[in-house]
Design a protein around this nucleic acid. Sequence first.
RNA 1: GGUAGGGUUCCCGAGCGGUCAAAGGGGGUAGACUGUAAAUCUACUGGCGAAGCCUUCGGAGGUUCGAAUCCUCCCCCUACCA
Length: 426
Amino acid sequence: MKAHDVLEERGFFYQLTDEKIVADRLNGAPVTFYIGFDPTADSLHVGHLLPIMAARILQRAGHRPIMLVGGGTAMVGDPSGKTEMRQMLTPEQIQANTGDIRTQLERFVEFGDDKARMVDNADWLLGLNYVDFLRDIGRHFSVNRMLAAESVKQRLETGLSFLEFNYSLLQAYDFYVLARDYDCEFQLGGQDQWGNIVAGVDLTRRLLSRSVYGATIPLLTDQTGKKFGKTEAGAVWLDSGRTTVYDYYQFWRNSDDADVGRLLAYFTDLPIDQVQCLGGLQDTGINRAKEILAYEATAMAHGAEAAKQAFVAAGRQFGFADPQGTVETSSAVAAIGVDDVDDNLPTHELEAAMLGDGLWIVKLLVAAGFEKSNGAARRLLQAGGCYVNDERIEDLDRQITAADFTDGRMNLRAGKKNVRRIILRS
RNA sequence: GGUAGGGUUCCCGAGCGGUCAAAGGGGGUAGACUGUAAAUCUACUGGCGAAGCCUUCGGAGGUUCGAAUCCUCCCCCUACCA
């Protein structure tokens, strides 16, 4: 399997520092490469997934990933692709986040002695001496050139602090350290990382007289041009405590028709010819393709069992796209027997005592997390978007009583897609 | 440090003494139509069990019957100059 060619045909490359050499190296003998994440939150979200998927493909082709968690760079904050400075994080936050992110990465890439390695740039960045760093590293950087970088230019309009301006030096230094100590010769990153990657390539050449390479992955946007992975509710997180497995599944299931092929290529392991075939389908076919995408993506992040439950739960709620199995696929969804599985709707537990003589529907909507305030819940009712056991509730004063529950369960829905199973607890 | 212009609700952006919970747009939510898609159309979009009341216009004071609007001090941003 030729890694470069696989990445290429799946659309993973945006820019390469050296087309020919990168192709040769990645198609050839094992290479050590790295991708980095700054621990600015306690969970990764789907926006981070693209480079991870690329790393996964490279690893399976025999290359060695270094997954860098940027405990040091997070102290500074990358200005690339941002219109303003992000809030500074405390060292404690960063440390906690670093641990959480490591755990998540383990689901996508195999770690071990001769497998992937995890590093934290805090190990070599935090101890740096300012003047030494300026003399040894800073002298290789031209401010003129840095100012010309696209990511900096953008920020010149709104303001860029000296702190952030230094970010690319640190990332460049990372690449140099990894090249020096781990024989790393290739870096992958998002489209907005181009400047930082190139800076690292240059620095390494100057300091080690050695050629290293880099590539960027296209920035994923949805049809409206917005960054992929953000929804009304914010980012779609990999942590099931932040984004439930069901919602994660639904995120993929609700993809735009036009995106399905691309997303399958990026976020599943299905062979490329099957991906192309699925992406070209229409009507029921494209909906089946979305189910496959959602199942595969969910299984990757949360495991096959959880994905199966989400698939069944969603299917019971909205119907299955292809119950006859007419669309051919090698995905494991094809084998799921719909009847013999417990579904996995997100639940909300309700103290039986809260019910009393009746619990106001507005209160329940808020308690279950559908709405932030009574006012918002009222508006939902008024707009006709609230359903109890799939029956629309029109009555603003509707009281929920024990009669609404069957076996201690009841179904509460806000709009078409947000369902929660309310479980009575005594 | 100097000069000029700014900080308005999730975002952009009007408002410049009462009629302001604050125009317009974006975004979001819901409904209709559909395929759990897109596009389109409609309604809603600070809080309160909704009568009325309460809290919002960078912060703190002040003037006034009344302040997002006027005054004072402070904080922050942008541009030019140093």
